[in-house]
Amino acid sequence: MTTVATPPRRFGATMRRDRWWVQPVLVVTSLTLFGVYTIIHAIVSKYYAITAGGAHLQSPMFSPDLPGIIQFHTSLPWAFLVLWAPLGLRSTCYYYRKSYYRSFFLAPPSCAVAGVARRKYTGETKFPLVLNNMHRVFFYFAVIVIGFLWYDAIRGLFYHGSFGIGVGNAIMFINVFCLSAFTFGCNSWRHLIGGKLNCFSCTPTAQTRHSAWKKVSILNGHHMQWAWISMFTVWGTDVYIWLVSSGAFSDPHHVF
């Protein structure tokens, strides 16, 4: 077999023997299904809160609850007014960037596998991909959304003002915990909390930030796992609330 040791090579050319294509296929499938599901539910804009029996369990895809909090009523799918922040955080997240550049853009589909030939590769230097540098702006807004999600989870513990607990509550708390772990393990937060400092030891404030940076670095080390786990917990929470609020079954809970 004659080969030339210098590219360019056709798409997918590689001497790798392993099943390098499995990961891109899984990522494309999962992200596409999640994206399509989210858009469909946002357009439908129904069955996003469990209110039977004095409960108030709000889907994370519809939080903050604009109609409930500020009496914002519209026939249009209002969820897009709140979804942009968490979806923007995810789509500009360094981990998701790796995933979709590999799986959707095929640039490259896997390490040492030739990507799609492009007339001119510009990476993240030109519009629209240069907007990925706005990740931390989405982070600022996503932190506000996380605050509302904790509020929703705590509010869900009160049924007509009485404390109660049920399966829905557990799901809500697991979800907001996972979302917090994803959000506060973010590379931008790791930078802002201390990574941007050149001297960790110079001042007492810098020492405190160094300590915080080390803790965030631990969380950041598992950012990929938290990204997937939290995506599935958001999805699962929304599906549960959709099913219960549409009457498919009831949410088992006990009011004290």
């Binding site: 960037r97 550049y101 390490c111 040492a112 510009t122 990476g123 993240e124």
Partner: peptide, 8 residues
């Protein structure tokens, strides 16, 4: 800016 952080 050309790096698209694919982590290879």
């Amino acid at each position: 800016g050309l790096c698209n952080i694919t982590k290879c």
